[in-house]
C-alpha cells in the first residue's frame, strides 16, 4: 500500500470537496444547499432489516445520544399463531400479543428467539418528520419546528424543557436530554444531509433497509419505488403527515 499515493489522492478535488463539506462548521460553507429544493423523508424496507443494531449504534456515535435514550431504535415483533388466526380481536386477545422487544433499543442486537411458532420481524423506528407534526404544534415557545425542507428540529438554545412535545408525539420519538434538560430527537442528521451526505443510520445500514429520500427531488428513486410497492406509515389514523415510509409493514405494528 502506497501511503504517499493516498496522501496525494486526498488532495484530489473530489475527496477534498467531500472533506471540506464534512468539516464545514457553518451552513454558509455548504453554499449549494437550498432549503426550498428539498422535502426530506426516509424509506424503511422492513423485509431487508436484519436487526443488527448498526443504525442505533451509528446514531448514538454520530449524535452523542445519551445512553438509555434513542433517536432511532429497532423493535422485534413476534406475532403468534393465535394472533394471526384472530386478527385485531382486541377484546379477547392476550395482552402479550404481539410481543415486542427492544433490548437497549436493539443497539447490541437481539436475543435468539426460543419460540419458533408465529412470525418474527424487525421494525426500525425513528422520528417520522411529520408534515403536520403534533409535537411542533404544542411547543409553547416555538423551540421546535418543521424546517422549510421538511425536517422536524429542536432549537436547543430556546427549548424550555417542558416536555409537552414528548407527550404529544404519538411515536415516542422524543425525550428530554438528561444533561441538556431540553427536548432531543432525530434531526435526520441535518448536519449531514445539508452537506450532501446521507444520514448516519443509512450510511451504517448493511442491507439498505433504510434510505434517505428527498420527495422533492424528481431524480430520487423513491418515486419509482412508491409506484411499484405498497408503502405505509405508522399510525396513519393520527394524520400526522408522517414522512418515514415503511415498505412491507405488518398490520400489527404500532
Amino acid at each position: 500500500m502506497n501511503l504517499n499515493r493516498r496522501q496525494m489522492l486526498i488532495l484530489l478535488p473530489a475527496a477534498a470537496i467531500a472533506w471540506k463539506a464534512v468539516l464545514a462548521g457553518t451552513p454558509e460553507e455548504a453554499p449549494n444547499y437550498t432549503m426550498s429544493d428539498h422535502w426530506w423523508g426516509m424509506l424503511i424496507d422492513i423485509p431487508k432489516c436484519i436487526g443488527c443494531g448498526n443504525c442505533v449504534r451509528a446514531c448514538q456515535t454520530e449524535n452523542n445520544v445519551p445512553d438509555g435514550y434513542f433517536r432511532t431504535w429497532v423493535e422485534r415483533y413476534h406475532v403468534s399463531d393465535w394472533e394471526m388466526k384472530n386478527p385485531q380481536d382486541i377484546m379477547t386477545n392476550p395482552l402479550t400479543d404481539p410481543q415486542v422487544i427492544s433490548p437497549d433499543g436493539g443497539k447490541e442486537g437481539f436475543p435468539v428467539d426460543t419460540d419458533a411458532s408465529g412470525k418474527y420481524f424487525f421494525v426500525p423506528k425513528m422520528c417520522n418528520h411529520c408534515a403536520d407534526s403534533p409535537c411542533t404544534q404544542v411547543c409553547p415557545v416555538g423551540a421546535t419546528f418543521v424546517a422549510p425542507d421538511g425536517v422536524v428540529l429542536v432549537d436547543q438554545k430556546y427549548c424550555l424543557g417542558c416536555a409537552y412535545c414528548v407527550q404529544a408525539c404519538p411515536y415516542g420519538c422524543r425525550y428530554i436530554h438528561p444533561e441538556k434538560r431540553v427536548a432531543d430527537k432525530c434531526t435526520l442528521c441535518y448536519h449531514r444531509i445539508t452537506k450532501g451526505l446521507t444520514t448516519a443510520c443509512c450510511e451504517a445500514c448493511p442491507t439498505g433497509a433504510r434510505q434517505l429520500v428527498d420527495l422533492k427531488n424528481p431524480k430520487d428513486p423513491i418515486h419509482e419505488f412508491l409506484k411499484t410497492h405498497s408503502v405505509q406509515v405508522l399510525k396513519p389514523q393520527m394524520a400526522t403527515g408522517a414522512k418515514v415510509l415503511y415498505n412491507g409493514l405488518d398490520g400489527s405494528v404500532r
Binding site: C139, P140, V141, G142, A143, Y158, C159, L160, G161, C162, A163, I176, K180, R181, V182
Partner: peptide, 16 residues
C-alpha cells in the same frame, strides 16, 4: 418542573 426555568419568559415574548 421545567428543564430551563430561566427561559420561561419566552412564553410571554414568543407565545406559539
Amino acid at each position: 418542573h421545567l428543564g430551563h426555568p430561566e427561559r420561561s419568559p419566552e412564553m410571554y415574548f414568543t407565545p406559539h
